[in-house]
């Protein structure tokens, strides 16, 4: 689990850099949340949980919200990804994007609830809600690209010799 965790954490860090240095303040996207959702669709739950902690910690460190708010919201994403994976048997990219839309919306609800419970002034202004909605829709539209990116990282790791536990053992003929 360590190799994919490092690889996906690095990918998350790169996406965070892109978001901060290139997209901000003109384009608002939740690339880390999308990455977490697509990693959550992969077989390994420990990897998804560990990545949610790493990325949640990264976001919380740069924000002024109470430490742990993004961490908790990341778990919501992982939970929705696991439910979608088991309950809806996601195979097509379109359905995955729709599921990611639902996950992002639930993450936002989780953030609002968390903020409310921690006595942090929640966001209910009309303009900001509109921006949040556009942000969630645009992020979900990028789902197929994120799917490819996650698959690309996976392929790179396999080329480097890493093999997930769920994969069958490679065939070895008897007598060799």
């Amino acid at each position: 689990m360590i190799a994919p965790l490092i690889a996906f954490s690095l990918l998350g860090l790169i996406l965070f850099y892109v978001q901060t240095l290139v997209l901000f303040p003109y384009v608002h996207l939740r690339l880390l949340a999308l990455l977490l959702f697509y990693v959550g669709l992969r077989p390994s739950l420990p990897l998804a949980l560990a990545l949610s902690l790493v990325l949640g910690c990264l976001q919380d460190s740069y924000a002024t919200t109470p430490f742990g708010l993004h961490l908790g919201a990341s778990l919501v994403l992982v939970a929705v990804a696991r439910y979608s994976r088991r309950g809806l048997l996601l195979q097509q990219l379109g359905f995955q994007a729709l599921a990611s839309l639902a996950a992002l919306a639930l993450q936002e609800v989780g953030l609002q609830l968390g903020a409310f419970m921690l006595s942090y002034q929640p966001l209910f202004s009309y303009n900001l809600t509109k921006v949040h909605s556009i942000e969630i829709l645009s992020t979900a539209a990028l789902g197929p690209l994120m799917h490819l990116l996650v698959q690309g990282v996976d392929n790179c790791l396999r080329r480097l010799g890493w093999r997930p536990r769920s994969d069958p053992m490679p065939y070895q003929p008897f007598g060799e």
Partner: peptide, 13 residues
């Protein structure tokens, strides 16, 4: 050198 890119808070590093 950096901003918090989320809409949840407005901070800079």
């Amino acid at each position: 050198i950096a901003y918090d890119p989320s809409l949840w808070s407005r901070s800079a590093i």
